[in-house]
């Protein structure tokens, strides 16, 4: 089957359009971008995390004039970038452990302060390293308002160890530890947590969600985050073709559907209050999102559609839309 490709000629979804004035072009469209994460790494084709990390760090490099160091938690991003002596990093980069990226970044920031240096720090990790095993350290970094931007690349499971469930795995998703078996196939309803909202509860200066589906929005948020000092949190939705069972060339499409159906709301918060949300332009049903991912195959098995369970997920999406006022964005 041939693929339908849609080109965006103008507007915020294009990376670089020479019709736009230079100020509004994406960092990614510039030949001067730092390529913080350069080519040659070992991520799967279509890896949303690889894309997200490059965009985030290139934007952060631009925002800091290159005065940036990066601390990375264990996970896919760490493993696929550093099969030493090959390293894809063109930024100073430190990996310590799975659970301590936030604290290590605090240490780097403290060293810089102690030395009177203006170098800034970004810490990054997957949803597991951020929301599960590293959550205590993250909360500590937030609570102390340490001068660190922490970026979570949320691919909704422990991908590096073979797609096991994390507290970011959505209900119904099949993972290696939530098989599509028994009376309640896939991940359970009522489990999991909302990391951005918990981050906001710390009252830190800046919290935002972003998606690889919207490059401009993501870059703007990185830039906004780097303008502020203190603890900041950016939660980026990054599809994982391998873990989600989506086509490698559907990464952006899948990410966009997650936003458009309301399952992944895009917003910004300052000091604990939501101050901006990115409105949904073309609302889509949750089902359209689910159908592109084999981790939800069991909802469509044997030609039947599991209407009931899909409705429960749709209800979560609807609630997000209402709660964050995503249709109007006001």
């Amino acid at each position: 089957m041939s693929q339908r490709i849609k080109f965006y000629q103008t507007g915020t979804l294009t990376a670089g359009n020479r019709l736009l004035d230079p100020e509004t072009r994406a960092v990614q469209s510039s030949v001067d971008r730092s390529n913080a994460l350069t080519s040659g790494h070992r991520a799967c084709q279509g890896c949303g995390e690889a894309l997200g990390a490059r965009w985030v760090l290139d934007a952060a490099m631009r925002a800091t004039g290159g005065q940036l160091v990066v601390v990375n938690a264990t996970g896919c991003l760490e493993v696929f970038t550093t099969p030493y002596p090959e390293s894809s990093w063109q930024v100073p980069w430190l990996h310590s452990l799975f659970a301590n990226a936030a604290s290590v970044a605090t240490g780097v920031a403290a060293a810089m302060r102690s030395k009177g240096s203006a170098v800034r720090v970004v810490a990054q990790g997957g949803d597991g390293g951020t929301m599960d095993i590293g959550f205590g350290a993250l909360s500590g970094m937030f609570e102390r308002n340490d001068d660190v931007l922490y970026v979570c690349y949320d691919n909704e499971a422990y991908m590096n160890t073979g797609v096991q469930r994390s507290s970011a795995t959505p209900p119904l998703a099949r993972t290696a530890t939530t098989p599509a078996l028994g009376p309640e196939p896939g991940n359970e309803f009522g489990h999991g947590k909302n990391a951005p909202l918990i981050a906001m509860a710390h009252g830190i200066p800046y919290v935002a969600t972003a998606s690889v589906a919207d490059l401009h929005d993501l870059e703007d948020k990185v830039e906004a985050a780097m303008k502020v000092h203190g603890a900041r949190y950016l939660h980026v939705h990054v599809p994982c073709p391998l873990g989600w069972g989506s086509a490698s060339d559907d990464t952006i499409k899948v990410a966009r559907l997650a936003v458009q159906c309301g399952l992944f709301p895009l917003f910004e918060a300052e000091h604990g209050e939501v101050v901006r949300r990115t409105p949904i332009r073309q609302r889509q049903p949750v089902e359209a999102y689910l159908r592109l991912q084999r981790r939800f195959d069991h909802l469509f098995a044997g030609g039947r559609v599991d209407v009931e369970r899909i409705a429960r997920l749709q209800a979560i999406a609807d609630r997000n839309i209402e709660r964050f006022r995503l249709l109007t964005g006001d």
Binding site: V69, V71, L94, S96, L97, A99, N100, A102, S103, V104, A105, T106, G107, V108, A109, A110, A111, M112, R113, S114, K115, G116, G136, A137, S139, G140, E143, R144
Partner: peptide, 25 residues
């Protein structure tokens, strides 16, 4: 100059030291 940091666990205490030391402090 010295930064004194109260952390939330020993695991983080040493992790902060790791970050600081790697940054040359």
């Amino acid at each position: 100059p010295c930064e004194f940091i109260n952390v939330e666990s020993e695991f983080s205490a040493l992790s902060v030291a790791i970050g600081a030391s790697a940054a040359g402090a």
